[in-house]
Nucleic acid binder design. Sequence first.
DNA 1: GCCATAGTCAACCGTTCGGTTGAAGAAGCG
DNA 2: CGCTTCTTCAACCGAACGGTTGACTATGGC
Lengths: 129, 129
Amino acid sequence: MVADPLSRVFSALADPTRRDIVARLAVGDATVNELAAPYDVTVQAVSKHLKVLEDAGLVSRSREAQRRPVHLEANVFDLMTRWIERYRQQAEERYRRLDDVLRAMPDDVAPHPPTDAAPTPIPQEGTPS
Amino acid sequence: MVADPLSRVFSALADPTRRDIVARLAVGDATVNELAAPYDVTVQAVSKHLKVLEDAGLVSRSREAQRRPVHLEANVFDLMTRWIERYRQQAEERYRRLDDVLRAMPDDVAPHPPTDAAPTPIPQEGTPS
DNA sequence: GCCATAGTCAACCGTTCGGTTGAAGAAGCG
DNA sequence: CGCTTCTTCAACCGAACGGTTGACTATGGC
């Protein structure tokens, strides 16, 4: 896959099995076989899932004899958290302001959902700010 | 699609165009045509993207004459945030504890990555707590 | 060297995804 | 009513996804 980092992280976590793997790795490192055990899919399938998680930077694998312990990389979560928080706060801020406007407005002028939309400057995510 | 809510939200945001739409909606509501303008894909394609975002609960659409203003639903972001924070903190806590153990250990006993993995009780995400 | 164990690579298969074109709904305007 | 505008539905297409089976690589123990 050649997608941007954020897309890789989000789509890696879009699969319930992969989220479950992440959840279990939060408790402690594990080998591929250990990770595969609970699911009724082949080890190869789990190996693929781990590759997806690794490409997203969510896990890393070392070597230890024949085993390849899988390790959760917590820091990549920040990438998501930052993205999410930015737009959540922005949206909530907008509601707060809208509330103020409506409250300050004489009742007989208050309109229905005021469609404040406009050809916005298109905040591009590549240049966040 | 019949996936679980969390999967829907994550995979909705796994697409850069859809994330950009969310980013622009954080500034203010907009119609399908307005949203479609900046991209060089057809309006139908954007309409599909909006359907995905709507199914994930990230946006809602009202009606206003022929227009269907699209509105960002900020509260659904919390679902993600909660999931992310749980495992991020869990993982960080684990590192902290591991650090303590290593610090408290006489140097000549300190092992390599201790592979503390085990057939963990599998914390299932359906029953988070 | 030989064999068992742990994991990955490669090819294939059905389904989903993001996109297209073309037609159809829904609502305002002359 | 007929026409234009905004939006969605339907069918299709190629690429990617999640899974399988089978062969291969890598390491350790005897």
